[in-house]
C-alpha cells in the first residue's frame, strides 16, 4: 500500500517535527490523517476540530506552507506524498497544532464587531431590501466562520502586532452596511483607527487563502473609501 510521509509540528514556540507514516487512501483529508495518527500512533498529539465539514472554523492549520481548513483539504489536492502540518501562523503556539486565538478574537472586538439595535423583541422584524446595494455589500462579507486562515495569510499582520487583520475588518464592513445596526459610526471609527483598514496593502493574500472565497480585501477597500468619505463629511460614501 502506498504511504504518506507526514511531518507534524510537536511543541510550542520551540519544538520540532515528528515524522509519521500513514497509508494513503482514496478519500482522505488532512484532518483524517491527523486523526488517524492521533488514534493509532501517538495519542499525545493536540489539535482542534469539531464539525469536520467546513462549518465550525476550528480545524485550520498550515499545510505544506499554506493556511487551510484541514477538514476540507483533500490529500489528493496537495499533489505530494510528503505532508507538513504546522499550527497557523501569526498566532502564539500553545501545543503541537493548537494556537492561542485570543488575540485574533480580541481584535474582532477592537474593530467594533458588536451589533447594536434600538429595537426590542416586541418590535416587528426589520424589513430589509435584499436587492439594495448596502445589503448586497453586507451579504458578500457575512459568511465568515472566524477560522483565522486569512489572518494567518496576511503579511501585514505578521509585521504589525496592532493590525486588526482581514477577518475583523471584514466583519466591521458587513456591520457598517447593516441598516439595522445603530452603532455604524462607532464601528467605522474603530475600523479606521490606528490598527485599522489603512494598514492593508490591498494585495489580497487573505482573499486567495479564504476557504469560502470571501474577500476581506474588497471589504477593507470599502472601509477605506467609507472612512475617506466620512472624513470629508459624507456619512454613506
Amino acid at each position: 500500500m502506498e504511504t504518506l510521509t507526514v511531518q507534524i509540528w510537536r511543541g510550542a514556540e520551540t519544538g520540532s517535527f515528528a515524522s509519521f507514516s500513514v497509508p494513503k487512501r482514496d478519500n482522505q483529508t488532512v484532518l483524517d490523517v491527523v486523526t488517524e495518527i492521533q488514534q493509532r500512533q501517538d495519542q499525545s498529539i493536540s489539535y482542534r476540530f469539531a464539525c469536520r465539514v467546513g462549518v465550525c472554523g476550528s480545524c485550520a492549520m498550515t499545510v505544506n506552507g499554506k493556511p487551510r481548513w484541514s477538514c476540507r483539504t483533500h490529500i489528493s489536492s496537495l499533489k505530494s506524498s510528503v505532508i507538513t502540518i504546522e499550527p497557523l501562523k501569526n498566532m502564539p503556539r500553545i501545543k503541537d497544532l493548537v494556537t492561542d486565538m485570543t488575540g485574533f478574537f480580541d481584535k474582532w472586538g477592537q474593530a467594533g464587531n458588536v451589533f447594536e439595535s434600538d429595537k426590542t423583541r416586541q418590535d416587528a422584524p426589520a424589513k430589509v431590501d435584499p436587492s439594495s446595494q448596502q445589503r448586497k455589500a453586507a451579504n458578500a462579507a457575512i459568511e465568515c466562520i472566524n477560522c483565522g486562515v486569512c489572518y494567518a495569510a496576511c503579511d501585514v499582520v505578521s509585521w504589525n502586532d496592532e493590525y486588526l487583520g482581514p477577518a475583523a475588518l471584514n466583519r466591521a464592513w458587513s456591520l457598517v452596511n447593516d441598516e439595522r445596526h445603530t452603532g455604524k459610526q462607532d464601528t467605522l471609527v474603530a475600523a479606521m483607527g490606528a490598527g485599522g483598514c489603512s494598514n492593508c496593502h490591498s494585495q489580497g493574500n487573505c482573499m486567495t487563502a479564504c476557504p469560502i472565497g470571501l474577500s476581506p480585501t474588497r471589504s477593507i477597500a470599502g472601509l477605506k473609501k467609507m472612512s475617506l468619505f466620512s472624513l470629508m463629511g459624507k456619512q454613506d460614501g
Partner: peptide
C-alpha cells in the same frame, strides 16, 4: 483601482484583485 473602483460581482470575488 482595486481600492476605488467597483469589484466585479462574481461569487468568489477574486476578479477584483
Amino acid at each position: 483601482i482595486i481600492e476605488w473602483m467597483p469589484w466585479p460581482d462574481r461569487a468568489d470575488g477574486q476578479g477584483g484583485l
